[in-house]
């Protein structure tokens, strides 16, 4: 119920922000569209703690994302240096390791973060097994039990 309500509010705010015109007809049309989308989402059975994870929002906004952005900037800079380097100093490697998350949500966050960071891409994702392609040997070696793994797990239990 609380997920339906927050999804409805989020959809309506999304309409208001995109439209930018606030005549009574358009606002009413926005409310109607939000309800219609919510009904369709209910029919698809996607309104739950996975499809609409409000319980993660606070922690994600103020602790995880800033750290992830910092991580993305550093690794993107590293990959850029390698691209511009005349001898192209890369050593592509595959790494297979066991993530410490238990729920699908945690695994998805971890895998998405790995792919979002330049220099590593998750190829296979399953419970208890990640297969990751890394641009360098050092990047592949640093994946198992990384800080990212620890942070994703701590976010999952909250």
């Amino acid at each position: 119920m609380i997920h339906s309500f927050s999804a409805l509010i989020a959809l309506f705010i999304f309409w208001l922000l995109l439209s930018g015109m606030y005549t009574p007809f358009l606002v009413a049309a926005g409310a109607g569209s939000a309800v219609a989308v919510l009904l369709i989402a209910h029919r698809m059975d996607v309104v739950d703690h996975e499809g609409h994870p409000i319980h993660l929002a606070w922690h994600a906004f103020f602790s995880y994302w800033p750290w992830l952005v910092k991580e993305i900037i550093f690794s993107a800079w590293d990959v850029s240096k390698r691209i511009w380097h005349p001898s192209l100093p890369i050593s592509p490697s595959l790494a297979e390791f066991v993530p410490t998350q238990n729920t699908d949500m945690g695994l998805v966050i971890h895998a998405n973060s790995i792919t979002l960071t330049p220099g590593t891409i998750s190829i296979e994702v399953a419970q208890g097994r990640f297969l990751v392609h890394a641009l360098t040997r050092e990047g592949a070696a640093g994946l198992a039990g990384s800080e990212m793994d620890r942070r994703c797990t701590s976010m999952e239990v909250k």
Partner: peptide
């Protein structure tokens, strides 16, 4: 292909 993906992810993030 896989190494090219790392280059493309720079465009998409930073």
């Amino acid at each position: 292909f896989y190494t090219r993906m790392h280059a493309a992810s720079i465009v998409e993030t930073l």
